[in-house]
Nucleic acid binder design. Structure first.
Length: 592
DNA sequence: CTTAGGG
DNA sequence: CCCTAAG
């Protein structure tokens, strides 16, 4: 089963008779209408036919966009996104599924039907089209890069996957200082007979092509000065970085190029996109995807890494079509669990693409379209009363995708919703700034007052928690090696995500509003922004809250029992919890 | 599917 | 967090 994103025109035929013509058009908002191309997500059935994608598959696509967009965002905000690794995997999985017609669905790895040549061709064509029209490369200025960490890496990693589908990242040789360029790394023209005519149709846009010149061929990062490393970083990831840590930069770049995070901190060397370290590890780390890209990468394009600014988004999509086919991207099933990422978003309300200047985050978050324009796909969620716009991220289920076509409509409507909501963003943004400027504003949040402020003031703490969290498991990447798998086979245990203060607050408020036990309700109404918290999670957390509460209440001495691992819950919340606990204890059956 | 509990 | 038994 492969998921294919194709041009509508191309797919239409396949869809004859199918009423469900789902459109996945992130760029439907405001000024993005320039590009008429519409994407349609379909799945390649075992018999080679294209089948409308399921809702989850669509979500994957959406998230793909989101992730790409959020990449920079994350880097800016430091490693807050705990779930990125998974997102990456999920995303890449989705994409790869399309590409490789190669059976690789987490839950049915070995049971893939055979595909005939025709089908393969078809798929490839579609894929190519998809790639041609898929932009995604976005410039992501690394604003106050608080130097994040692995999390970023995953993002980057992910971006690369994206790129691999949309455009090979040429690793240019004539880079600066001390780069060991492997000249043998010549370009191999795509000799794929199956090449679609469309390929040639796309005019080469060399001029506009983003410059990846800094990352081509064999690069010996060791000898590069920090500045050069930063440049390389930029060329690699498409965004600036202010990080001055040489080691970090090298590692990051290497990881990005090799599409792996298992990069030793020393002896970084990349050859043909393969990590060549002194350690033998290198081989394990390489990724087929990247190899493909490199091979086909155009030789020239030596302009300089001005970064992939706006223009890049456009040109990227054009010339790379011919490649890719040569080598199938093969990859093991990757992790799942896209979820999260919304936590962050909640705290950093997005702004529409209009004010790119205002907030880099918004720009980052936006999704570039074929014409280099950016669109911000968002949705409005209610956060404790007030509505906040957050990027559209799917509320991923853990269940397998279903053949339900109706679900497709959901996506569509969501997109519309997002579009409609874009107007409010500015206002929200201002509010955020305002609130952020006055940290002292934290008042007694005993009741359900100013939730927004609450959230905002807690950002720092949340970030911390998340950072810790994410860094903890950032080490595992694409390969499932060493990953704990659960009974079902392939399913990985959900990440442990420390509950942030804001989450707890929301939970408490939710309980206050809807009553303990209405977890589903609470989840739906108060936790729409935290896609990864399931009703059960809420329930468990509440149970824990009560537990800790009871543990502390007998002896009012709560200072002594504090452990490092556990987050210190503010007294207020604790009291609130207790209050609610009593309430519910007194009148359980009653309807509140 | 949603809850409640146990592990 | 996960899993499962009950509505």
């Amino acid at each position: 089963m492969g998921t294919v994103v194709g041009n509508v025109e191309e797919c239409r035929e396949m869809f004859e008779g199918s009423a469900a013509q789902t459109r996945i058009t992130p760029f439907s908002s405001t000024n993005q209408i320039k590009n008429p191309v519409t994407y349609k997500l379909v799945r390649v059935a075992g018999d080679g036919r294209l089948v409308p994608a399921t809702d989850e598959e669509i979500f994957e696509v959406n998230e793909t966009d989101m992730h790409t967009a959020s990449d920079a965002c994350q880097s800016v905000g430091s490693l807050s996104a705990q779930g990125l690794p998974s997102q990456l995997e999920e995303t890449s999985q989705g994409l790869l599924q399309s590409g490789c017609v190669e059976p690789s669905y987490t839950e049915q790895v070995n049971s893939q039907p055979e595909y005939n040549e025709q089908m393969l061709q078809k798929v490839e064509q579609d894929e190519r089209l998809a790639m041609i029209h898929s932009p995604h490369m976005l410039s992501a200025p690394d604003a106050n890069s608080q130097c994040c960490n692995e999390t970023n890496m995953f993002n980057e990693d992910h971006v690369h996957h994206d790129s691999s589908l949309q455009q090979p990242i040429p690793f240019s040789s004539d880079v600066q200082n001390g780069c060991n360029v492997d000249q043998s790394n010549t370009v191999v023209p795509c000799s794929n007979a199956e090449a679609s005519p469309k390929e040639t149709a796309a005019p080469p846009a060399t001029a506009q092509r983003p410059d990846f010149s800094l990352v081509r061929g064999e690069i010996c990062l060791n000898n590069l000065p920090i500045k050069a490393l930063q440049e390389t970083f930029k060329a690699t990831f498409g965004r600036e970085t202010t990080v001055k840590d040489k080691t970090w930069l090298k590692r990051r770049i290497t990881m990005g190029l090799t599409n792996s995070c298992n990069v030793p901190t020393t002896n970084l060397r990349i050859t043909n996109s393969k990590l060549v370290g002194n350690q033998d590890k290198a081989n394990d780390l390489t990724d087929d995807v990247r190899a493909t890209n490199l091979k086909d990468a155009p030789p020239s394009s030596t302009d300089n890494a001005n970064g992939h600014s706006n223009a890049s988004g456009h040109s990227l999509t054009e010339d790379f079509s011919s490649e890719e086919r040569a080598a199938k991207r093969v990859r093991k099933p990757t992790r799942r669990y896209i979820e999260e990422l919304s936590e962050n978003d909640e705290k950093q309300p997005v702004v529409t693409s209009k004010d790119e200047k205002l907030s880099e985050k918004s720009e980052v978050r936006s999704i570039s379209v074929s014409l280099g324009k950016r669109v911000t796909v968002t949705r409005v969620v209610s956060l404790a009363g007030s509505e906040i716009e957050v990027p559209y991220v799917s509320l991923v289920r853990r269940s397998r995708p279903r053949e339900n076509i109706m679900a497709l409509m959901e996506c569509h409507s969501s997109c519309l919703e997002a579009k409609a909501s874009s107007g409010e963003s500015n206002m929200l943004h201002k509010e955020v700034l305002k609130s952020a400027s006055g940290p002292d504003q934290k008042e007694s949040a005993t009741s359900s007052s100013n939730n927004e402020e609450d959230v905002l003031t807690e950002v720092d703490q949340d970030m911390e928690t998340e950072n810790i969290d994410s860094s903890g498991n950032s080490s595992d990447d694409n390969n499932n090696i060493g990953l704990p798998t659960m009974q079902g086979g392939g399913l990985r245990r959900k990440h442990h995500r420390a509950w942030t203060l804001s989450e707890v607050t929301q939970l408490v408020e939710g309980v206050a509003k809807y009553g303990a036990g209405k977890w589903s309700e609470i989840k739906k109404l108060s936790f729409s922004s935290h896609s990864y918290r399931t009703p059960v999670d809420l329930k468990d957390k509440w149970r824990n809250l009560l537990r800790t509460n009871f543990a502390q209440s007998p002896s009012n001495i709560m200072g002594s029992l504090k452990k490092h691992g556990s987050m210190d819950i503010p007294m207020q919340i604790l009291l609130q919890v207790r209050e609610l606990a009593e309430k519910q204890a007194l009148v359980p059956p009653n309807h509140r």
